[in-house]
Design a protein around this nucleic acid. Structure first.
Length: 426
DNA sequence: CCTGTCTTCAGGGCCACAGATGGGG
DNA sequence: GCCCCCATCTGTGGCCCTGAAGACA
């Protein structure tokens, strides 16, 4: 790894692929990762512009430089440094083969770099995307209180902030960024790049077996093929059971207690989205899909965001759901490592981000963060780790089997616990 | 600040037995 | 190739034990 692209050795390296442990220029990144479905799943992020060795996790807005955790910590971590108050923005990973326009949406600052801009236009080309009416039932969660991210941008810059929120994206919509449920931002009020939004929408639909890209995308279908996640093995055992519900019945669904009750009835664990990523899904008012899609399949281009050994446990933000059926994130028992793949988002889960020195230099309100951490801990405490039962018959038998101190006993022998009678024989 | 004690929590093991699996005839 | 028989393996839930981690004096 170094300053030059590991693949061509000719161009300046711009992105870091964790899966390949390689630094690549944009053109090689696209070439290498468009080879097959598996390579498209590799998550990449910008390369640290200081050490040129590690993937960057944060961009210092003041210095206009992308930094890895180490360099960020070195440069900003000490509260005595003036730079410690620099406003920083989380950089997240992406996968698939995004166009230059999409990259510029994900990393709004990318086009600040002339070489990147040139490479984008030259190697990738800009794609024209028809306007699509996407207003309506979408809602996206804002940053978690624990996030350091776009809060650092000025409040007056609503558009850019929301752009960052949503698009920094692979981990905003796709990724592992935690969020709180009570901080929703309606897209109606936000100027979102619609092309990328379409990716989120259709990318999710792609992953739904049987869904035809063309049905939704029309002549733009090709554009979204790169985000096609048909190959993904979702292994969602309760898929049909969960999502066979038609959106036509969504009103009844919510009247009956919404998603909480639904998950309870299904025997699935339900986690607050605090611990999970924000993944948008279609609202009923979009009126395109007839069935709800498994939100976590929307990992679509985020693929490796949930490095996808995921139990069929979905995270669903009920409040968002009630306000228009917008899904929020999910994965099952995402490990910290899973989140780390996507940059700093996991740090909220794991504790203090490197740049979040326990002092006041952060622009983020500590009370919000503390409350978010508190909520997360409470949720974690009460979280139910459901396990998958492979053989229902064995479970049924075990459920009625008599025991002594929790151990099964032979039929007819003395027992101290009978699941059927809750009685003791001795 | 260090040390010892207590509490809390997570993870693994144990048990019987029906069903799954694989080998041999 | 197909069928049958037999031995072995697997997985199921509740309780207990143990070690790690945190809280507290």
């Amino acid at each position: 790894m170094g300053f030059m692209c590991d693949f061509c050795g000719d161009q300046r390296s711009m992105v870091y692929c964790r899966s390949d442990a390689a630094c690549l220029c944009l053109s090689c990144d696209r070439n290498v990762h468009s080879a097959n479905a598996l390579s498209r799943r590799h998550t990449r992020t910008l390369l640290c512009e200081r050490c040129h060795l590690q993937p960057s996790t944060v961009r210092c807005i003041e210095e206009r430089v992308s930094l890895c955790q180490n360099c960020d910590w070195t440069g900003h971590g000490t509260s005595t440094l003036a730079s410690s108050s620099h406003k920083r923005q989380t950089i997240n990973c992406y996968s698939g083969c995004p166009s230059a326009a999409e990259l510029s949406c994900i990393w709004s600052f990318v086009l600040d770099v002339p070489s990147v801009n040139d490479a984008c236009e030259k190697e990738l080309g800009l794609m024209s995307i028809a306007e699509t009416d996407l207003t309506g039932a979408w809602s996206l969660s804002e940053n978690n209180a624990g996030q350091r991210m776009p809060r650092s941008t000025e409040a007056s810059d609503v558009c850019s902030r929301e752009k960052s929120n949503v698009l920094v994206g692979s981990s905003s919509l796709f990724g592992s960024r935690p969020h709180t449920s009570d901080q929703s931002v309606e897209l109606d009020n936000v100027a979102l790049p619609k092309d990328l939004l379409r990716h989120h929408i259709f990318g999710m639909q792609f992953c739904c077996p049987g869904t035809k890209v063309a049905e939704f995308c029309g002549e733009d279908a090709d554009l979204y093929k790169e985000f096609d996640m048909d190959e993904m093995d979702l292994n969602l055992e309760n898929y049909e059971d969960l999502f066979s519900m038609s959106l036509n019945h969504s009103e009844e669904f919510f009247e009956n207690g919404g998603i909480d009750s639904f998950f309870e009835a299904k025997g699935l664990s339900f986690e607050d989205s605090v611990s999970h990523s924000a993944v948008a899904a279609e609202g009923s008012s979009v009126g395109v899909v007839q069935q709800m899609q498994p939100a976590y399949s929307n990992g679509a281009s985020a693929d490796s965001v949930m490095s996808t050994k995921t139990e069929p446990i979905l995270c669903f933000n009920s409040r968002q759901a009630q306000s228009g059926m917008s899904f929020s994130g999910l994965t099952g028992e995402s490990s910290a490592g899973d989140h780390q793949d996507c940059g700093a988002s996991s740090m909220f889960l794991m504790g203090e981000p490197p740049w979040c020195a326990p002092s006041t230099e952060s622009s983020f309100p500590s009370t919000d963060r503390n409350s978010a951490v508190q909520r997360y801990k409470e949720k974690k405490k009460t979280r139910k780790f459901e396990k998958t039962v492979r053989y229902a018959t064995r479970k049924a038998r075990a459920d009625v089997r008599r025991r002594v101190k929790g151990r099964f006993v032979k039929a007819g022998e003395a027992y101290d616990y009978d699941p059927l009678n809750q009685a003791r024989s001795c």
